[in-house]
Amino acid sequence: MKRRDFVKGIVLASGIVGITPFIPAGKFLVTTFSFKYVRQKIANVNDIPPNNRLLFTYPKTGDIEQDSDPFRKFLLIRLPNGEFKAYSAVCLHLWCIIDYKPDKVDIECPCHGSTYNAQTGVAFKGPASKQFNKTLPEVKLEIDDNGDIYANGVIGVIGYGREGA
């Protein structure tokens, strides 16, 4: 090996080694796909009759700008059998706000007619049902002895569903 090639090789190797620690810094650009989902009281069982729903903000920050984000909007649904379910209110198709329909006992998107099963949160009709991601993110609910309903964490990614989360 020529002396000149050896020096070139060393400089190259040094450069590569020097740059390596900066590569993971690319993570700076990658946002975490969640908010801080702390335990938060959202309602009381008496606030919502069976076969009805309530739109709530979670996690609530008190800041109007942050709290108006559709990604913080959830539907608390009391099914006809009295069971409570809470799903992200953001449709998985094009992020419109979906709503619970008591007469059909399902969740519908007003924009393009995507329809979700209220029991499971899985889309079975409309454009969202044809996607890979078709299961609405669900809020983990806790009900205490006073009937207070607490949200404590979210399964899935808002806007992107539970698939591959």
């Binding site: 990658v30 969640s34 990604f71 808002i158």
Partner: peptide, 8 residues
């Protein structure tokens, strides 16, 4: 995640 971040 990079282009849009999370939330509106």
């Amino acid at each position: 995640s990079i282009l849009l971040g999370f939330g509106f």
